[in-house]
Write a protein that binds this DNA or RNA. Structure first.
Lengths: 155, 155
DNA sequence: TTGACTGCAAACGATTTGCAATTGC
DNA sequence: GCAATTGCAAATCGTTTGCAGTCAA
């Protein structure tokens, strides 16, 4: 995808965001808009703190609690997802398409990947009997190439 | 599996636990043993607090920080796994066999299920290129039958 | 104009830590 | 006996909340 097309898509997502806010009765504030745009432009699963630090250059007075509050609000109206992790800090991402996560056990970075086939596979019977299934997410743990080359296994 | 066989298996796991502690240079204390036994006997993915409350009947003086400390120690030597959740409290389970999780979005209860076939499926190329894969975990979100029958969707 | 939203500071819940007493090896 | 482990209390971290001023609609 070329740059101009990316811009177009970003623009569409931002318009969609405004509509979603309107529908939910939320005011479209400067802070909220920048938080959402930042999540879209740098889709690297930041923590609330990460996000806050990045936003300070554009919004020098934005407070960390606004970031927390906004993420909680966005989560409720389905604009943002809280990612499952074993870390103590929560990570967030803008909702855009079903996907799965690759997590590096060393650097903790989360990478997205698509696995459309997963939905075509038959889940075990015990799962079907358990209840109504909503989403199937795959989380793969491993060591990313970068970490593998940086840190030797035995030192 | 009948009761006597279950007892036998529990016994084996406890013996294995002692060996793992020895190998890791950990002392086999009363508290550690009871924490591990409790995790094995009630494999319901408790939080540290859940676990602490249950242990109080057998060990009236055990402190919550010991439970936390012990779980962290067990995690490091591979006896226990910290489960990925979006909740603020961490959940734990004794490590015994590869499996996946069914999480009810309403009651938050976690159920285990096996899906041995998952390992035979081909992961996407981008995953193979990312690095060295360790474990593949599937997390399915949905509503369990119990919650579905208890709470109506619209009220 | 007005209620929703923000920044501030203070509270909160979950988890971790320093320390002296205790216990397994 | 000695180092590792525990219980206690206090500290810490991430997150949430009450409040008074501010801003989008």
């Amino acid at each position: 995808m070329d740059i101009s097309q990316q811009k177009k898509q970003l623009h569409q997502m931002m318009e969609q965001y405004v509509l979603t806010c309107r529908k939910a009765g939320l005011k479209v504030t400067h802070q909220r808009t920048e938080i959402y745009r930042n999540l879209l432009m740098l889709p690297d699963h930041p923590t609330a703190e990460n996000l806050h630090k990045r936003l300070l250059s554009d919004l020098p007075s934005i407070s960390l609690d606004t970031v927390y509050r906004t993420l909680a609000t966005f989560e409720q109206c389905g604009l943002v997802t809280r990612i499952q992790t074993t870390e103590s800090q929560a990570r967030f991402e803008a909702v855009y398409a079903p996907h799965h996560h690759l997590i590096c056990s060393r650097c903790k970075k989360v990478m997205d990947f698509k696995w459309p086939d997963i939905d075509t596979y038959q889940v075990p019977d015990e799962v079907k009997k358990w209840g109504r299934i909503n989403t199937i997410t795959v989380v793969i743990y491993g060591i990313c190439n970068n970490c593998e080359s940086l840190e030797p296994l035995i030192n």
